[in-house]
């Protein structure tokens, strides 16, 4: 049997493949643009969240010990944190837009913390506040993940716990001030109610025991 190449068929198949590939790629790109355009961009959403948060902070003073406004700001702050994490994963750690939003986020966290401290003084309900200083550096990957997991768990388990996270590599005067105040210069540093914890918790139980003991002493 003589074996021949059917070049017209091979060429046609190749052209169809090129067309389908280009069409698929284009369709994918157009759909992506449409999805992104249909909803607000992440940056816009983040900015809107920030404006709303600032307004609620102003309103909060009128509510005094009512937790309604505080709950809204807490939830919004968490959402904003997730939004910035998403942006960071999408655009990279060094993106200027992301860095700018992180700075604003730091300011909002600090304001929220001030609000909480004020309530702790004025109202019956007492919040326990963690400051969590972390680094996104390669060398700090494991300890950062470990402490993040432990703190997220404790925050979810206890309603009276608030956690404020600060990226020590961020160029922010607030963070620099807090870093200096609590001596936060390693991969992870945890501060509970303005007291630096001088040990690295091996698990959540260890930190929980420390937290509950510290509340009993209040």
């Amino acid at each position: 049997m003589e074996r021949k190449f059917n070049w017209p068929r091979i060429t046609l198949a190749f052209l169809i493949a090129v067309f389908l590939f280009a069409f698929g790629l284009l369709a994918g790109y157009v759909a992506k643009e449409y999805i992104q355009g249909a909803s607000l961009t992440l940056e816009e959403t983040a900015r809107n969240e920030i404006i709303e948060l600032e307004t609620i902070y102003l309103l909060d003073s009128q509510f005094q010990c009512n937790t309604e406004a505080l709950d809204i700001t807490s939830s919004k702050l968490d959402n904003l944190g997730e939004l910035i994490t998403t942006l960071e994963q999408k655009k990279g750690k060094n993106d200027q837009e992301v860095l700018g939003l992180k700075k604003i986020y730091t300011v909002l966290e600090t304001r929220h913390y001030l609000l909480i401290s004020q309530r702790n003084k004025q109202c019956a309900q007492k919040y326990s506040v963690f400051f969590y200083f972390y680094s996104n550096g390669e060398k700090c990957h494991t300890p950062t993940k470990e402490i993040s997991t432990i703190l997220a768990y404790i925050r979810n388990k206890y309603d009276f716990v608030r956690v404020y996270s600060f990226d020590i590599d961020l160029n922010s005067d607030i963070i620099d001030f807090l870093k200096k105040k609590y001596g936060a210069d390693s991969c992870v540093t945890v501060v509970l109610d303005e007291q630096k914890i001088n040990f690295t918790p091996a698990n959540a139980a260890e930190l929980e025991a420390y937290l509950l003991k510290s509340r009993n002493n209040l």
């Binding site: 997730e82 997991t149 388990k157 959540a204 139980a205």
Partner: peptide, 16 residues
């Protein structure tokens, strides 16, 4: 990582 929280998924879970 879950071993750090003693595999307590119930308290760790929060659907948002």
């Amino acid at each position: 990582l879950y071993s750090l929280i003693n595999y307590d998924f119930i308290n760790n879970f929060e659907f948002k």
